[in-house]
């Protein structure tokens, strides 16, 4: 088991190295750069380019060097000092710019993950034990639309409904007075009050898919011999379902975190843009459009770190929970 964990960790480190490379190249591949555009703009405006600043930046990040040198100049400080580079557009280091937004992205994503499971598990249990009942059909029907509605559309519809019927604008994760306030218990509470809307919007598609997977898993498991064996020895139905089929169906659900988490991070990105939440999404969009290289690379990198770590955790959780995998890995 120890070896397995060590191996997984090493693998994740390797993956993250690869991610940084891929991210950096993708971000830098589009022709042109922020600096070039800026210089052009200045020229067009007729003001002489403030070349000292541009030259400094070019030199600092090796912008006139080949891409692999640029990469090394980016990843080096990142690894040694946690320096994510400099935002050309915002004229400040990247890390303080994204730190808070990253934290909120993590909070919203984790809350969505919890929401998905908290809603999906009871519904799937109900649907599977009441197959073909009205409730089962209703949830299946809702699930189909939950799966089919892109999250940005859901966010839009949510906003319209809130505005039209309740007269409130659901945008934001904080009330105005807390928006730029330092962290305090009151600010945390304010965040908690604002969480439900984005969490529901982000979590809907995931909830629908988890219900679907878990329900069919459970129905499969109900047919299994060991369930009949357990029933034949007199175990009560509710205990039986939780101990045998449910516990068994939980494994694919846990391994599904690996696909669910990237989906949730994707969803939170676009929902944050639509609802104007102070998360990484809007900043990422803007930095991509403006070619603000280090901001885009930093955000993309950190979002990937999040999902890759999520997959790692789900793998370890699975190995811990499922004796079959434990054997396979230890042998």
């Amino acid at each position: 088991m120890g070896r397995y964990i060590a191996k997984r960790f090493l693998y994740v480190l390797f993956v993250l190295g690869l991610v940084s490379l891929v991210v950096f190249y993708i971000i830098n591949l589009p022709p042109g750069s922020w600096i070039e555009n800026y210089a052009l703009e200045l020229e067009a405006a007729g003001s002489p380019a403030d070349s000292s600043e541009l030259t400094f930046l070019r030199g600092r990040y090796g912008l006139d060097q080949p891409l692999h040198i640029q990469y090394l100049r980016w990843i080096g400080p990142l690894l040694t000092e946690g320096d994510f580079g400099y935002s050309f557009e915002w004229r400040q280091p990247v890390w303080p710019l994204i730190a808070d937004r990253l934290l909120l992205t993590v909070v919203v994503s984790l809350a969505s993950l919890v929401f998905v499971y908290a809603v999906a598990i009871p519904i799937a249990l109900y649907s599977a034990t009441h197959q073909y009942s009205f409730g089962d059909y209703l949830f299946s029907f809702l699930g189909i639309f939950g799966l089919a509605t892109p999250s940005f559309l859901l966010a839009l519809v949510f906003m319209v409904i809130m505005l039209r019927f309740f007269g409130v604008s659901p945008g934001g994760l904080f009330s105005p007075e807390y928006l730029n306030a330092p962290w305090s218990p009151a600010r945390v509470w304010d965040l908690l009050i604002h969480l439900p809307v984005p969490v529901i919007v982000v979590g809907t598609a995931g909830t629908a898919s988890v219900i679907r997977i878990l329900r069919s898993q459970l129905l499969d498991e109900f047919q299994k011999q060991y369930v009949i064996t357990a029933r034949a020895k007199g175990v009560s139905e509710s205990r039986l379902i939780l101990k045998y089929p449910f516990r068994m169906a939980l494994n694919p659900i846990i391994s599904n975190i690996g696909t669910l988490l990237p989906a949730i991070v994707s969803g939170s990105t676009i929902v944050a843009i639509v609802l104007g939440l102070p998360m990484t999404g809007p900043l990422l969009l803007r930095s991509i459009i403006a070619q603000d290289t280090y901001v885009a690379a930093g955000i993309l990198m950190m979002l990937s770190v999040m999902t890759v770590l999520g997959v790692l955790i789900s793998d370890l959780l699975l190995a811990w929970l499922d004796p079959r995998i434990r054997f396979e890995k230890s042998n």
Binding site: K224, Q225, Y226, I228, T229, A230, R231, A232, K233, G234, V235, S236, E237, K243, Y244, R247, M248, D322, P323, R324
Partner: peptide, 29 residues
Amino acid sequence: AEGKTIRTIRGGEIAMIFQEPMTSFSPLY
């Protein structure tokens, strides 16, 4: 069929063994 009486009989008064020894036990316990 899910009541208490039949559950005391199942496994208590009447026990059953099945064809498939491979799948009769849950692999998780």
